[in-house]
Amino acid sequence: MGEHLSSAAIENPNRRDFLFIATGAVGAVGVGAVVWPLIDQMNPDASTLALASIEVDIGAIPEGQIVTVKWRGGPVFIRHRTKKEIDDAVNTPLSDLKDPQTDQQRVKRPEWLIVVGICTHLGCVPLGHEGQYDGWKCPCHGSVYDTSGRIRQGPAPLNLAVPEYAFLSDTKVKIG
């Protein structure tokens, strides 16, 4: 290709140069079209995507308890928070937080905290009612979360994610 693109050729491209580049471009598109399905087949498939939401009866969860439900193959924590846990979360100054978010931004009803139970460090499942903030503590690398699921200590960079959810009634919540 180098010799075809001498300065004279660039100033005066001929038919052969055009065909050369056009053929190459079509070839590149063709290779891309063949490779993409081979890559995309690894993405979550239609049956996985179809399992995107669940409904949970929360009526039986007593105050202070954390229930773990399975959503999209992983855990979601539903925590019925006590007055003290809510107050601790609300009264934490934002300046103490690594990933600043108010408690109000993370809940729809203060007594119910619903978060994805996957540590934002490397994906382990944190243990409830542990760590110095009585929120969660990750057994893998020691990240500590508070009663709002916010990261307080350790290597995790972000708060526990809040999934999309809606209260269908006082005792029923739809996640996803």
Partner: peptide, 24 residues
């Protein structure tokens, strides 16, 4: 596989691609 979530911007998509789902 979560090591890949450390990649800025595309980390989440890369891990979903590796898992073929939302988790292992």
């Amino acid at each position: 596989t979560n090591l890949f979530t450390a990649i800025p911007l595309v980390g989440g998509s890369v891990s979903h691609w590796l898992w073929g789902g939302y988790a292992v």
